[in-house]
Amino acid sequence: MELKIKNLSKSFEGVKAVDDLSLELKSGIVNGIVGPNGSGKTTFVNLLSGLLPYDKGVVVIENTKIKKMKPFESLGYGVTRTFQDVRLFEQMKVIDNILIVLTKKDVFGSLFERQSDYQLNTALDILKKVGLYSKRNELALNLSYGQRKLLEIGRALATKSDVYLFDEPFAGLFKEIKKDVIKLINELKKENKTVILIEHDMDLIRELTDQLFVIDAGKLLASGKSEDVLANKKVIKAYLGN
């Protein structure tokens, strides 16, 4: 599923966090987004997932033009995300953190819905995939930091969305867990999903992404094939500093 962003803008009390941004994010590849702290990357993800309303611009998913989106509508457009600061359902079991994604979304449908074997097995399969099967009956708050990140990714995978927004999924992870996350992201790429990865680690960006966008002060500084962008002198000077 292709995602086109046209002239997207967002200001906070006059300060432009995202400034007339236009991008085309392709499916079947990993689209990297980099930029210094405060450059507007997370604001961009918040706009794409409906957490913030945009002031101007339009998001086009396949042929659907979206001029405004509420958080609970984003999944309907095939968009899911993880958060920079992990947001789990802490005082719920690990398995319930996945099951919540799989159940009916309307009030009356969910009132009369009982957990099916299909839902349970799907959730267990996801937990196996992210390596948390053995933790399924523990409360999410008892997981380690790395396991929490994995559970959040698992929760996103359970949506079977077309567009995945990963906001710094590698931050603070040990090498071993990083490998697991890399594997999961590559699987999504193989499934022809649109993966959008915000990341600071340039080695990971080089290894994982196919297309790269550099944002600075809410504006698009450079874009193109990752290796080309990373070799771009303008980018090196403005962002990498050497």
Partner: peptide
Amino acid sequence: SSFGRVLKAIRENELATQIFGYN
């Protein structure tokens, strides 16, 4: 019911619950 699970999710993190399609 699934509704009960959604209630608990709202209690834990309303924004994350919304992201998964719940008004």
